[in-house]
């Protein structure tokens, strides 16, 4: 149980660190997370099943998700706020329909069983301990890369879009391009997260990529701390506990489900009242003395 829960926390952390780039730093509520998660999961699963090495497959899953993210960005470039949210939701729904209906590739609602476990240079990660080890390393890698980006001038530029797009344009910033990169980057980590999910659970079907999971991811980011990657990890830890613990406590599934909903909503309401920017808010990343921080 410990290994299982921790592995899920890591998978969701990676996914939501990506989402946080878009929601927390760039300030757009995207409802496409399940789609990127799914694109990464299917891509990587299918590639590994046809003989492609694990590491290449998960990166390919991330890249394909990023390409779709880029296209989504191009389509939504003029949209703000609500329209953007709606468009991303529509995109996620379309993607799910593709998972369901492209049976030749995805086997539709039957799903893909028997997805191989990760194998790197001949070493097969078959125990949960080995999994955890591998996924922790991947999480650290994702965290390091993302932290490097959000602390850089590029990260600061993302924040200006969240703060005031018009002002950023007045300073000469190419908002459309930057927003697009942010969405693609976020989608990349969503795809990688989905790939890791597929190779852990070893079975995926379209029902794993519904709106419900998108909302679950959004709550992780919002609860943990928008614009704070460590907060996102904290959010993933909390939400996995809230979702999975009732199962271990022997509650009936129906009761557990409604309890979950109640806990989710309570978390959101309490946070909105007490800490609107999440448990761990954004950190001040810049100080005059430690100016090298700007480039870390």
């Amino acid at each position: 149980m410990f290994y299982h829960l921790t592995i899920l926390m890591i998978i969701y952390s990676i996914t939501c660190i990506g989402l946080n780039i878009v929601v927390g730093y760039t300030g757009f509520f995207s409802f496409a997370r399940a789609a990127f998660f799914g694109i990464g999961a299917y891509t990587s699963a299918l590639l590994v099943m046809s003989g492609v090495p694990f590491l290449i497959a998960i990166i390919a899953g991330g890249i394909l998700a990023a390409i779709f993210g880029w296209i989504l960005g191009l389509i939504t470039v003029e949209m703000t706020g609500d329209y953007f949210a709606l468009a991303t939701f529509a995109f996620a729904e379309m993607t799910r329909q593709v998972f369901i209906n492209w049976t030749g590739l995805t086997r539709g609602p039957l799903g893909l069983p028997g997805i191989p476990r990760p194998e790197i240079f001949g070493f097969r990660f078959s125990t949960n301990q080995a999994y955890l080890f591998l996924y922790i390393i991947l999480l650290i890698l994702v965290l390091l890369i993302t932290e490097m980006y959000v602390k850089s001038p590029f990260g600061r530029l993302l924040k200006t879009i969240r703060e005031d797009e018009t002002a950023a344009q007045s300073l000469g910033k190419d908002i459309a391009k930057t927003k697009n990169i942010a969405i693609a980057m976020g989608a990349f980590f969503g795809g990688v997260g989905g790939a890791l999910y597929a190779h852990y659970i070893t079975y995926i079907d379209p029902s794993a990529f519904v709106l419900h999971i998108t909302i679950f991811f959004l709550i992780i980011v919002i609860a943990g701390g928008m614009g704070n990657n460590y907060g996102t990890i904290l959010g993933a830890v909390m939400l996995v506990l809230v979702r999975e613990l009732p199962r271990y406590l022997g509650l009936s599934p129906a009761f557990a489900a409604s309890l979950q909903q109640m806990v989710y909503s309570s978390i959101l309401v309490i946070l909105m009242l007490v800490r609107p920017r999440g448990l761990l808010g954004e950190r001040k990343l810049l100080s005059e003395q430690s100016s090298e921080e700007g480039g870390k």
């Binding site: 850089s152 001038p153 600061r156 924040k159 200006t160 005031d164 002002a167 990343l285 810049l286 480039g295």
Partner: peptide, 22 residues
Amino acid sequence: RIFPEMTVLENLIVAPQDNVGE
């Protein structure tokens, strides 16, 4: 139109058009 949730210093150093690293 300032960037409210950014520090005063950040507001300024984000502005230059020749910033390296964007």
